[in-house]
C-alpha cells in the first residue's frame, strides 16, 4: 500500500436492539480508491473494522434493490453511489428514513410487504383461456402502457423520499401504487375494479400532495409520482361517475 492511499470518514448510524436504547453514530476511517462505491465502503468496515455492522446487499449493480440507504440524507442505492463524490468530506450513512430499524442499516419492511400483497401484483386474467387457445397476445402499444411501471425493484427509496408516507405510514405509497397501476393498465388484466378499492380508500392516492421526490430518487425511472397522480384522476372520475357506470364502479 503506497503513501498515496486515500482514506475517507464514513459515519454510520448504528442500532443494536438488544444493547442500544436508541440509534447512535459511529465514525470509521476507510481506505478507498476512486472506483469504490459506498456499499464497498461499508463492506470494508464489516470485513476489517467491525464485523457486527449489519446491512443488506446482493447484486452490487442496481438491480436487486437491497442496498438502499440514506447517504448524506438522500435515499440512494449504496452500490451506485461513489465515495469519490464525497471525498474529502465525511459520508453519513443511515438506515432508510420512515421505516423502523431492525438493526444498524437494516430496516423492517414488513409493512411494505403487506401493501405489496394487498395490491394483488399479478395478472388477474380478463378471460380464462385454455392452453389450446394459446398465449395472450399484446401489441407494442399495449406493452408501452405499463412497461415503465413494471421496472420497480422494491428498493423502497421512494418511501424514504415520500414526506406523506413519513407522516402516515398507512398510505399505500409510491412503489405499491406504481405496481398496482402496472397491472391495472395491462390489456390482459381484469382486476382493476378490485384494485381501485384500494386507490379510492383513505389509505389511497389522496394522501399524496404531489411532491414528486419519489420519482426523483427512483433508480429505475419508474416515475411512481406519475402513477399516483394518474390514479387521482381515475379515482375522482370513479367517485363522481360511479352511479352512471353499469356495474356501479368500484365499491
Amino acid at each position: 500500500m503506497s503513501e498515496m492511499q486515500k482514506t475517507i470518514e464514513i459515519e454510520v448510524l448504528r442500532y443494536h436492539p438488544e444493547k442500544d436504547k436508541e440509534p447512535h453514530r459511529q465514525v470509521f476511517e476507510v481506505p478507498f480508491t476512486d472506483d469504490m462505491s459506498v456499499l464497498q465502503g461499508v463492506q470494508y468496515i464489516k470485513d476489517y473494522l467491525d464485523g457486527s455492522l449489519s446491512f443488506r446487499w446482493s447484486c452490487r449493480m442496481a438491480i436487486c434493490g437491497s442496498c438502499g440507504m440514506m447517504i448524506n440524507g438522500v435515499p440512494n442505492l449504496s452500490c451506485q453511489t461513489f465515495l469519490r463524490d464525497y471525498y474529502p468530506a465525511r459520508v453519513r450513512v443511515e438506515a432508510l428514513a420512515h421505516f423502523p430499524i431492525e438493526r444498524d442499516l437494516v430496516i423492517n419492511m414488513e409493512g411494505f410487504i403487506e401493501k405489496l400483497e394487498s395490491i394483488q401484483p399479478y395478472i388477474i386474467p380478463k378471460e380464462e383461456r385454455t392452453l389450446a387457445q394459446g398465449e395472450y397476445l399484446q401489441t407494442p402499444e399495449q406493452l408501452n402502457a405499463y412497461e415503465q411501471f413494471s421496472s420497480c425493484i422494491n428498493c423502497l427509496l421512494c418511501y424514504a423520499a415520500c414526506p406523506q408516507f413519513g407522516l402516515n405510514s398507512s398510505f399505500i405509497g409510491p412503489a405499491a401504487t406504481a405496481l398496482l397501476h402496472r397491472y391495472n393498465v395491462d390489456s390482459r388484466d381484469g382486476g382493476k375494479a378490485e384494485r381501485m378499492e384500494l386507490i379510492n380508500s383513505e389509505e389511497g392516492v389522496f394522501n399524496c400532495t404531489a411532491v414528486g421526490y419519489c420519482s426523483e430518487v427512483c433508480p429505475k425511472h419508474v416515475d411512481p409520482a406519475n402513477a399516483v397522480n394518474q390514479n387521482k384522476t381515475n379515482s375522482a372520475a370513479d367517485y363522481f361517475l360511479r352511479f352512471l357506470a353499469p356495474k356501479g364502479g368500484a365499491k
Binding site: E197, S201, E202, F206, S235, Y239
Partner: peptide, 16 residues
C-alpha cells in the same frame, strides 16, 4: 385481520 377499506371522500375536495 386488517380493517375493511373505507372509501375516501377526498375527490370532492380534490376536484374543487
Amino acid at each position: 385481520m386488517k380493517a375493511p377499506l373505507k372509501r375516501s371522500n377526498a375527490p370532492i375536495f380534490w376536484a374543487l
